[in-house]
Design a protein around this nucleic acid. Structure first.
Lengths: 210, 210
DNA sequence: ACACAACCTAGAACGTGTTCCTATTATGGG
DNA sequence: CCCATAATAGGAACACGTTCTAGGTTGTGT
């Protein structure tokens, strides 16, 4: 139930893969993820073809599969990285808003706008996340952790020590994350517009953080 | 943005496809869906292979594609049928519970238990639903309607005239549906156990229908 | 009964995710 | 520096979703 990176070290949900391996390997990994973003940004899920990723990243197809055992792993890893980037950007700044609900909404709307600015990329990452099966459990778990962490931080406003976050906070954050994902999915599949997505999220968050 | 059934009539979200076409065509459609259930029940999403479905349903591959334009359409249609069956079964009975939250939880837990009794089938249907893109929007919409309808009925307890259901009810029901789907997905992908799924749903519903 | 359209069957063919194989190239220990 | 091992390149091969083609069958209006 663990995957291995090119160095053969076990990669669990809590490992930071980014720093593993030689410099050349880190660069290969980066090239692969960059190629993935590029292709996804232009053509969405379908355009992220493994042969194309390999070619654009200048690695052999087999090497790509050694780094990411499937297209879904690749895309979910890309999503996770995006979330972690977003999270550290948020950690660095103060979150406006007087109540938890206001702050959470501020953060979620910001994130959502960001993702809606790159619809194809978002479509690719979201659909991969949704399609993932149990073999991608650890990557999915990592994404869930990032998302929960983003929401709990927003609830408390700005950077916060881990101790200040209760189990109840986490529960609330998870429910909010669920709603956010569903709303994002409805938008990605064209069932709802951007304003509807925002409104739905707003309703849900005010309901949950009442 | 509409598909056509074998008779060439437009099939929107509100049509009842089940009754369209000749008797032979209705039987073919049923054989296809039955084969889909069979294969999904045994082997999940991966086992629902179009060639296998066609063979087991005793139709040509091209015919299968005429009835359902993709594997995803096929599986989402199967999911929709399950939901509609569940809904009519619920409509026929009284829902126990003194508060909306109690009744909704009763119904959701019942549904969830039912789906967890057929893990492979649930995996197949849920993953198809999650993976669907905008070309499946109308089928997905139908599923969402069924789900919302199940929840609003539960909120009101038993059968209810359409007028009694307010926009607010629908909003609440949608949020609950979102959470339910996410919880189901977490269970399907092995990220949470059945009791955890139930607990998560319980928390969320009590929070939302407070 | 006939003509015509719609539908169906059987199976080839194609695209893309995935696996596999062989030769070549780093990498690290003696 | 040399060897053993792992990693990579290059590309063939395979699986399954999907499309397409050719010919047979069914149903319908006249």
């Amino acid at each position: 139930m663990t995957t291995t990176n090119p160095l053969g070290s076990a990669v669990g949900a809590d490992d930071r893969v980014d720093n593993a391996g030689s410099a050349a390997q880190r660069e290969r990994r980066k090239r692969i993820l960059d190629a993935t973003y590029d292709l996804a940004k232009d053509g969405g899920f379908d355009a992220v073809q493994m042969r194309a990723v390999a070619e654009q990243a200048d690695v052999a197809l087999g090497t790509l599969y050694r780094y990411f055992p499937s297209k879904i792993h690749l895309l979910v890893s890309a999503l996770d990285q995006q979330f972690e980037d977003a999270q550290s950007r948020l950690q660095a700044r103060d979150i406006p808003g007087d109540t938890p609900a206001e702050r959470v909404l501020y953060v979620l709307k910001r994130l959502t706008r960001g993702m809606q600015g790159d619809p194809k990329l978002t479509e690719a990452l979201t659909r991969a996340f949704m399609f993932a099966d149990s073999s991608v459990a650890s990557e999915i778990h990592a994404v869930g952790m990032s998302m929960t962490s983003i929401v709990t931080q927003a609830m408390h406003g700005g950077a916060v020590e881990r101790d200040a976050i209760t189990d109840d906070d986490v529960t609330l954050a998870r429910v909010i994350g669920d709603v956010w994902l569903s709303a994002l999915m409805a938008w990605v599949t064209g069932r709802s517009t951007a304003p509807e997505t925002a409104a739905h999220m707003e309703t849900a968050v005010r309901l949950i953080l009442r």
